[in-house]
Design a protein around this nucleic acid. Sequence first.
DNA 1: CTGAAAGCGCTAACAT
DNA 2: ATGTTAGCGCTTTCAG
Lengths: 352, 352
Amino acid sequence: MARASRQAVTIRHVAAEAGVSLQTVSRVMNNEPNVRDAVRERVNEAVAKLGYVPSLAARRLSGSRSYLILALNDRDRTIEGWRLGQGNDWVDQMLYGGMLKSAEHGYRMIFELIDSHAAHVEREVSAALAALRPDGVILTPPHSDNPVIVALLEARGMPFARIGSYESGAGVAIRMDDAAAGRAATEHLLALGHRRIGFIAGPAEYTLSTERAEGYRQALLGAGIALDPALEEIGDFTFDSGVRAAEALLAQAERPTAILASSDQMALAAAQVARARGLALPEGLAVVSFDDTPVVRFSMPPLTAITQPIAAMASTAADLLIRSAGGDVIEAGPYILPFALAVRGSTQGNDH
Amino acid sequence: MARASRQAVTIRHVAAEAGVSLQTVSRVMNNEPNVRDAVRERVNEAVAKLGYVPSLAARRLSGSRSYLILALNDRDRTIEGWRLGQGNDWVDQMLYGGMLKSAEHGYRMIFELIDSHAAHVEREVSAALAALRPDGVILTPPHSDNPVIVALLEARGMPFARIGSYESGAGVAIRMDDAAAGRAATEHLLALGHRRIGFIAGPAEYTLSTERAEGYRQALLGAGIALDPALEEIGDFTFDSGVRAAEALLAQAERPTAILASSDQMALAAAQVARARGLALPEGLAVVSFDDTPVVRFSMPPLTAITQPIAAMASTAADLLIRSAGGDVIEAGPYILPFALAVRGSTQGNDH
DNA sequence: CTGAAAGCGCTAACAT
DNA sequence: ATGTTAGCGCTTTCAG
């Protein structure tokens, strides 16, 4: 009993069992040509019988692929999300999309935290690459546009994907169409009869902020409504900044009947400010948010929101990187994935 | 340009730079004795200068540790949690505790999903072990008590931790004290003046269910209150089962003024049933839940709950396994980690 | 179409 | 205290 079976089944055992050379087993395992069907089958039988699974370490070391995809996330944000214990949607959706897609291809996704503030970004990323030698790297915001990381990956010739990035350059960009999302959200409000619609933008450093604002304006103009600068405020995605912005919007004599906010937190802030002023959602004020993290489903009422395709972006990234590692030539992108508008009680009737 | 720097810096480069043998570099990297301080320093300088990081694959292959901890989670539950997008607390807290602790030791935690229903459990686990050759495995419920998995790990001589398990046997068990938690939750209600306290238990197959029930009863008896079978219902942790149980409890002539439910979902169900019967929380009915997943913070009012130390359990598991891999002899356990009682609006006043 | 030899980067076991 | 030799399990040449 329980003698540590120090020695697992290796390619050698399979070769012996099937009566072929190591090489042939390797060819079969990697789906290479130049093996007769009869032999291939014999090998597969031996593999099944012995329960053989190739060692990742040995494969990697012998100069082939590592079958590893490395996903780099922002350290502080991620840990803060975990610490708060309110459900870390970004991480979950990354895993959901990226890990499952990787597994489909026999790959594994390793999730790693990188501190982007530190001067050691380069060292941290280098160390992870050296230790793991992944076949591809997935960058998430804010790393997606970090010039140090991008340059490092490019210099190393490492295939990588930049999720949520509007910048061009090395690596394949994967994102949603924020302008279209801003338009869709605004059109939803227009369709409900709103004519004075306030907008809380994100910081201008983020391209997606300006894209969303652009979509908002396009929708208004498309409906023949003149733009009013008094209806546009700027926040920084946080709850507090949302409070300030919403107060500025709702303090106006001719206050908006709806607010579109560029993040869930700012939308929740707007809802709170509205309540404080005696405005009930959705009658007194309609609110639409961006992101659709779990929290908006649990607010009262739940918020209508633009859903970011995080899982789909991670899945696409993994798929592209793995196919690229397999020798496929993949298109440069950018890959624009569809968003969704989840209509909930903050804009519509009293369902839920 | 970006010529793929095919060849990264290896132990050989460091040895050359420092003017020593490979072995000496290896010794320094692994903090082994028998190296003069002067030499050690010279090697460390070379390492720093070249930015050398050992290849995990080579280390693993040469027969030493893999520096990998494998965390096995239930496939269906995990994916369902991701799909619902309500914040997958278990996974997040696992990562929070396990990944960070692993990183402290220079380890990586690989998160893998295993389908416990399938007849292939054994094959799935074997394959993961064969491919990764981790230094330790963390089992989470329901895998923690899966006899096939436990037997396999034991036969392989693989160190492993069973999180949330009350069973004895191979592997180190890490859990909280559910009886004490049941007692604490009940005593909280007693302290608030409640005398008729309903209890919704989990399925009896789970030891933790009976432990929690035991704690509930101890607390009542300790307060000199006779047990009343009519106050105990059984659910299966789901919302629907919670509805049935709560309805049975609240339909009684002498209905309870408080309900302790063995899961968040059942507690939310109790809250809903109460509302439907015109009972407001906490005045009409006080509710306490177990688990403390994100969702209970967002309900109205937020639910008072027993918080499971998931992150701490994962952290402890990683720490024990890694120290074990390092040659330390670790105590058999079980390791009992402290829970917490988060008091919120469903039992107490009107804060928030 | 198949096999034999060499070597990936490291550590274990054995020198010295 | 340090260096040398072998070999982990696989894939890559290169031969047949």
